[in-house]
Amino acid sequence: MFLGGRADAEKELAHALSRQIGYTSGAYDLARIFSVLDVFSDNPSAYKEEVIAHLRANDNEESSEAYLAEITNFAQSMRLIETVSSRDARLQRLAPTEYGRSLLGARHLGNDKFFTYFATKVVLLADADYLTPILLYDGPQDSADLHSSFISFQEDLRERRMRWLAEAIPEKVLLDRIVRQITWLKLGKGIGAAHKIEIPSRNTARHHATPRQGWLYYLGMRDENKKVTDFGRAVIKALVPCSPYFWLGPLEGVEETLQLAPAVRKGGPFEDTFNLSGGNPIASEEEIESILDDIAEIMIRGFPYAKLVHASQASLKLPIEYIHYRSYRDKRLYPWETVIQRLFSVKRGLIERFSAHRGQVGFYRLKAEFNDGNK
């Protein structure tokens, strides 16, 4: 649920309308991008040069400095890491986000299916607009048809979104503020001039479509024959509901904060409610009780990597995403708020909860006597 002000709401809406990673010069391998997080296993932050040195130490291809630097750009675009140094600092300092720390915890659990589920959500939050048309495409792979389909999808998507924006936010000053934050839109020049939609070129489509086929395979959405898997179909069902308008929306509550008229609000799937368990029956109390031990184990084993390092606590995003994963796996809807509340009641001797500084997610910490063995 979104709890910020108007400026933050405008930023969140712009991001939801432009979930695409624009970098095309390298760093196409997802495993390599995620490996950036390993630098922070025991460090709260690191200079960009230190991250690049880590990547070089694990590079078997003698990649250029520019190529390795591009990997950190991808990690930032996926909101796994962020810049924490000031703008005028001579060296750029990076640190993991809450999502980054949580994914690092999942990365070290040895539960490949859960990690893939979590990683898929992270990638979609950053790149759904570019990845979805590759997933939906059912024509000949590795062909010009794929690139043409990608371009057509983006052109139609952007025109629909621009029409919706103009209808939802008719005040020009407010509309222009959001347009400035959308990568594929340019302000119209001159009084009354229409905003300009940028359409990807065929060369751009080739650079984006080809590597993302590898991403789909890595995430298990397509198999080695490039056919859509059951997991891929579940993603499509959750991401592209029965609606003519496609988006992975902002945090729930952003549209209300911006005071959009109820008739024009697009609703979900929202960033903070997106999961693959839609339509599944709600779990019974007995079924909820049956997964509490598994969730606690995930929290305990993942804590040394998911914790903030500078503070002995970890984001609840880790167990929440595991609950979403279990909802998908078990074909039961486990409401995460209910499950988390029950978990801290049952496991209060092992784990304690901390309130969030912003939002409703919050943090957790292992009890001192248990934490001593999990540093």
Rank of each mutant, 00 (worst) to 15 (best):
G5N: 13
G5C: 06
D8I: 08
A9V: 02
K11C: 11
A14M: 05
A14K: 03
A14E: 06
A16N: 04
I21D: 07
Y23K: 12
Y28M: 07
A31L: 09
R32N: 12
I33E: 00
I33Q: 03
I33S: 00
S35N: 06
L37W: 02
S41Q: 10
D42Q: 12
D42E: 13
P44M: 08
K48N: 11
K48Q: 14
E49K: 13
E49C: 09
V51Q: 07
E61A: 14
E65L: 11
Y67Q: 13
A69S: 15
Q76I: 08
S77N: 14
L80K: 04
V84F: 09
R87Y: 13
D88V: 12
L91W: 13
R93F: 04
L94D: 08
A95W: 06
R101C: 11
S102P: 03
S102N: 07
H108K: 15
G110L: 07
F118T: 01
A119C: 00
Y130H: 14
Q141T: 11
I151P: 00
D156E: 15
L157A: 01
R161F: 01
R163K: 15
W164V: 02
A168Y: 02
V173A: 15
L175C: 08
D176Y: 08
D176W: 09
R177L: 08
I178P: 08
R180V: 07
R180G: 07
T183Q: 14
L185R: 00
K186L: 12
A193P: 01
A194T: 08
H195C: 00
E198D: 11
S201Q: 02
S201V: 01
A209L: 03
T210C: 04
T210L: 10
Q213M: 14
W215C: 02
L216E: 04
Y217R: 13
L219G: 01
M221N: 01
T229W: 05
R233F: 07
V235Y: 06
I236G: 05
K237I: 07
L239R: 06
F246V: 02
F246D: 10
W247G: 07
L248H: 06
P250D: 10
L251N: 12
T257M: 11
L258S: 10
Q259F: 08
R265Q: 15
F270L: 05
T273I: 04
N275V: 03
S277G: 15
N280I: 02
E286F: 10
E286I: 08
E287Q: 14
L292P: 03
D293E: 14
D294Q: 15
I298E: 10
I298M: 09
I300M: 12
V309N: 09
L316D: 09
E321M: 13
H324T: 06
R332P: 09
E337L: 11
L343S: 08
L343G: 05
I351F: 02
E352Q: 10
E352P: 00
H357C: 08
F363T: 05
E369C: 01
N371W: 09
D372P: 00
